[in-house]
Amino acid sequence: MTKTDTSVPENVLPTPSHTVGPFYGYALPFRGGEDIAPLGHPDTVTVHGHVLDGEGRPLPDALIEVWGPDSEGRVPAADGSMRRDPATGTYLGRNGVEFTGWGRVQTDADGHWYVRTLRPGARGRNAPYLSVCVFARGLLVHLFTRIYLPGDDAALAADPLLARVPGDRRDTLVAQDEGHGTYRFDIRLQGEGETVFLEYK
């Protein structure tokens, strides 16, 4: 029964998740998906890493989405992440001016991904972070995690989530500074150094 009777709240039950499968690559990724920051913005950071399975092998078929605020901590409201050319139907890329805050990137054959986005600003009591959603063949329900950027130890120490993460796993949520605004963030789905994943209630 897939017509939902919304007059009876108890009948409104979630649609189950399914894997993204192996063949989304011609449908979901789009040109410029990883270039989120407006062109030439001085607060741009590059975050990159691998997605790895339980044997440490990189996934060539993972899909990463990144969602974050601008450098002032404001949530973007602009559309236009996947602008299209009405004449040809192809992707135009972002306009390089507006910040949509959202990007999507497929891992390459080496399981590597990157995004260029604005350095996120802090919101409320939280240390600055980017929200991440991971999809992959073999992953029946997507996984959420966060990329915290290193540098402000006091802010990281005061972060309500990081405070709850066991000390030996906390580093999986904090990217490594590689200099020149570049940060490394590997996502380990299973096993040694498994990334801390999140669920929202």
Binding site: G138, L189, Y200
Partner: peptide
């Protein structure tokens, strides 16, 4: 799914505690 599922439970975030979450 065998090598691609986490073995550790996820950490739950109660969103009603913090309206500022970007999520």
């Amino acid at each position: 799914s065998v090598l691609r599922h986490p073995k550790q439970p996820p950490i739950a975030i109660d969103v009603t505690k913090d309206p500022e979450l970007v999520e």
